[in-house]
């Protein structure tokens, strides 16, 4: 296995056990001495910390640029509102209103303003935490409530992928922009599903997305035993690997609801995660595959402050 494999753990909908798989895999491989990193990119509802219980060493605020208007200088020409594709700034009767939560920081308004009345100012959209959890290197993003800049925060979290670690990315549920941002550049995607008609429906959408993005992937069935065998039939027909079937076990649900790691409390599942780890170790990475945008940086310290990520003291 290459040192720097990036595995994205995704699912078509929430509540399929994505975080359970991601945190257990991270915890299990760390126990075996693997250098492993868990990155919570489900920034709207991060919950990996509930299971991994990291000790947070430091955290930083993530900011984006939004317009600040100096009404003294503004001539009310309306150009800012015309250029903004997101209605985040609008000129109404010589008054300019800004809607910071809608701004995408395209810089259009402050570039176009003929009166030089607009300046960018930082707006805090969320936070990133860094810590350690029994051998697992933890990075977690959390979006501030009401902000729509999920992909920006995910991008920021992913900048902290370490070169010499197995990186496990907890991807937000669904198939929208944040998911695309979270799986982009991954070497392999694990898709979690439940063996039900709804599960299959969501799975097909996610498979479509990862195929579109040209990413290799395999499937994990959670709560195996409920529903029917349609997911298995689908995988056979589509020639997709099923790497793990986690049974519908009440004790797993109990471990989950009490925030415990399955492999710690139910040792019989060690074998399943060991098989998953073996599978991952066999994954070949197209190192020279330039089509994939690599996100990792040469950065061993684990934290890199950039213009848009400011570290809290």
């Amino acid at each position: 296995m290459p040192d720097n494999l990036v595995i994205a753990v995704a699912s078509g909908k929430g509540g399929t056990g994505k975080t359970t798989i991601a945190t257990n895999l991270a915890h299990y491989t760390a126990r075996l001495g693997q250098k492993v990193q868990y990155l919570d990119c489900d920034v709207e509802e991060p919950n990996g910390h509930i299971f991994l219980k990291p000790k947070i060493d430091f955290s930083g605020a993530v900011t984006i640029d939004v317009p600040q208007v100096d009404l003294e200088k503004c001539t009310g020409c309306g150009k800012c509102g015309e250029i903004c594709q997101y209605s985040a700034i609008i000129c109404i009767k010589e008054n300019v209103l800004t809607f910071e939560q809608l701004c995408h920081s395209c810089s259009g308004c402050w570039r176009i303003c003929p009166a030089d009345a607009i300046k960018p100012k930082p707006l805090n959209i969320g936070d990133i935490e860094f810590g350690k959890a029994s051998g697992v290197d933890f990075v977690g993003g959390k979006l501030r409530i009401g902000y729509v800049r999920t992909p920006s925060l995910i991008k920021e979290v992913k900048k902290h992928i370490k070169e010499d670690h197995l990186a496990i990315i907890d991807v937000p549920p669904g198939t929208s922009c944040p998911v695309v941002e979270a799986v982009r550049g991954a070497d392999f995607v694990l898709l979690i599903t439940e063996p039900t008609p709804f599960g299959l429906n969501d799975l097909k959408l996610t498979v479509g997305l990862v195929r579109e993005m040209n990413l290799p992937f395999a499937i994990i069935i959670n709560r195996y035993g409920i529903g029917n065998n349609e997911v298995e039939k689908y995988c056979a027909a589509e020639n997709i690997d099923i790497v793990l079937k986690l049974p519908d076990d009440r004790r797993i649900a109990e471990a989950y609801s009490s925030g415990r790691i399955i492999v710690d409390v139910l040792s019989e599942y060690l074998k399943q995660f060991s098989e998953l780890y073996e599978y991952i170790k066999r994954i070949k990475v197209g190192i020279n595959d330039k089509r994939r945008l690599r996100v990792r940086r040469k950065n061993k310290s684990g934290f890199r402050s950039s213009s848009s990520c400011t570290q809290d003291p």
Binding site: Y86, S87, I90, I92, K93, F99, L102, V148
Partner: peptide
């Protein structure tokens, strides 16, 4: 995609 209320408001104004 977003900001419909704002652009609609502008149209009405």
């Amino acid at each position: 995609a977003g900001g419909a209320g704002i652009s609609s408001g502008k149209v009405v104004i």
